[in-house]
Each structure stands twice: as structure tokens, then as C-alpha cells.
Amino acid sequence: MSRIVRIVAFGCGLCGGIIASQGPEYAQQYRQRLGGAIDELRQVITRFEADAQASGETRESAIVRLRSNTDDFVSRQGAAMQANVERLRNLEIHRETMMQAGPFARVALMARDGDRDVMEAVYRDF
């Protein structure tokens, strides 16, 4: 029985060591990609807002107009833009929370509240 406990303890210690050594670096790369995702979404939304303004609309009214369109494709574009706006807001809040946390708290925040798309991209390159 004590041999099994030692094996489990060794495995847990090994996992803890890996997380302690690689977690902060992974979180750093995650934050960098998070910033890139935020910058890209801002550009998409800024272009959309400029198009909406040129048509005499606000961002919100343009999204409503698109979403209420009977053409399924156009309606889906409105839903996609609404999702972009919401994702940008969530990513900005998440990044601000991470910037205020310490290195190991960032790992926990990333694991708990992280953006899955960004985390998968970091994992592929890590």
C-alpha cells in the first residue's frame, strides 16, 4: 500500500513541478496571443462601425438590422458581428484581470476563464 502512495505522490510532485516551471511561460504566451486577438477584433469592429456610420447607422442598430433581415446569410452575419462584439468585451475584461494577477494566479485564471481558441493556438505552438 505504501508503495502505491509513493508512486502517486511522485506522480503528483512531477505534475506539480511541470506546472510550476512551464505554467507561467504558457500564461505569458497566452497573454500575448490574447492581446493579438483583441487587436484583431477591434479592427474588425472598427471597420464595421465605419460602414455602419457611412450608412447612417450605429453599430448596435446595424447589428439589429442585419439580424432581423429575412435573408438567412445576412441574418447570420449580424449574429456573427454581435458575437464579435461580445467576445471582444469578454477578452478585454479577461486580459485586465490577468494583468492584475500574479504569475501563478494568471495560470489559474487562464485555466478557469481562458478563451479556448486562444489557449488551443498557444498549445499548438508551445
Results as ranks from 00 to 15, higher is better:
Glu86Lys: 10
Ile63Leu: 03
Gln82Ser: 14
Phe73Ser: 12
Gly78Leu: 04
Gly78His: 07
Glu86Leu: 06
Pro103Glu: 08
Thr97Pro: 06
Arg95Tyr: 08
Thr70Lys: 13
Thr70Asp: 08
Asn69Arg: 00
Glu96Phe: 14
Ala108Pro: 06
Arg87Gly: 03
Arg67His: 08
Ala62Val: 06
Asp72Pro: 14
Ser75Glu: 00
Arg89Gly: 11
Asp72Trp: 09
Leu88Phe: 03
Ser68Ala: 15
Ala79Pro: 06
Leu66Asn: 04
Pro103Leu: 11
Met99Asp: 11
Leu66Val: 01
Gly102Met: 02
Asn84Arg: 06
Ile63Ala: 01
Arg106Met: 00
Leu109Met: 09
Asn69Cys: 00
Asp71Ala: 14
Gln82Glu: 14
Val107Trp: 01
Glu60Val: 07
Gln82Ile: 14
Thr70Gln: 12
Gln77Tyr: 13
Arg67Pro: 06
Ala108Cys: 14
Arg89Tyr: 14
Ser68Tyr: 12
Val107Cys: 02
Arg95Leu: 10
His94Val: 04
Ser61Tyr: 05
Gln77Ala: 12
Ser75Val: 00
Thr70Glu: 10
Val85Lys: 01
Arg65Ile: 10
Ser61Gln: 04
Glu92His: 04
Ala83Thr: 15
Arg65Lys: 13
Arg112Phe: 09
Ala101His: 00
Ala80Val: 09
Gly102Phe: 00
Ala83Asp: 11
Ser75Phe: 01
Arg112Thr: 11
Arg95Asn: 07
Gln77Lys: 09
Arg95Thr: 04
Arg87Leu: 10
Glu86Tyr: 08
Gly102Asp: 03
Gln100Met: 15
Glu86Met: 08
Gln100Arg: 13
Arg59Glu: 12
Met110Glu: 03
Leu91Ala: 02
Arg95Glu: 10
Ser68Glu: 09
Leu109Ala: 09
Glu96Ser: 07
Ala62Asp: 03
Val107Gly: 01
Arg76His: 13
Ser75Arg: 03
Leu109Phe: 14
Met99Trp: 09
Ser68Cys: 12
His94Lys: 07
Ile63Trp: 01
Asn84Ser: 13
Thr70Met: 15
Gly102Asn: 02
Met81Ser: 04
Ala108Arg: 05
Ala83Arg: 15
Ala105Thr: 04
Glu57Thr: 05
Phe104Gln: 06
Phe73Gln: 07
Leu66Arg: 03
Arg65Ser: 12
Arg112Ile: 13
Asp72Val: 09
Asn90Ser: 10
Arg65Thr: 07
Arg89Asp: 12
Met81Cys: 05
Ala108Trp: 06
Thr70Cys: 13
Leu109Ser: 08
Glu57Ile: 05
Glu92Val: 04
Arg67Lys: 13
Thr70His: 15
Asp71Cys: 09
Pro103Asp: 13
Asp71Glu: 12
Val85Ala: 05
Leu66Met: 14
Pro103Tyr: 05
Arg65Gly: 10
Ile93Trp: 15
Arg112Pro: 04
Arg87Val: 02
Arg59Cys: 11
Val64Pro: 09
Asp71Tyr: 15
Leu88Asn: 02
Leu109Arg: 05
Asp72Lys: 10
His94Ala: 10
Ala79Phe: 08
Glu60His: 13
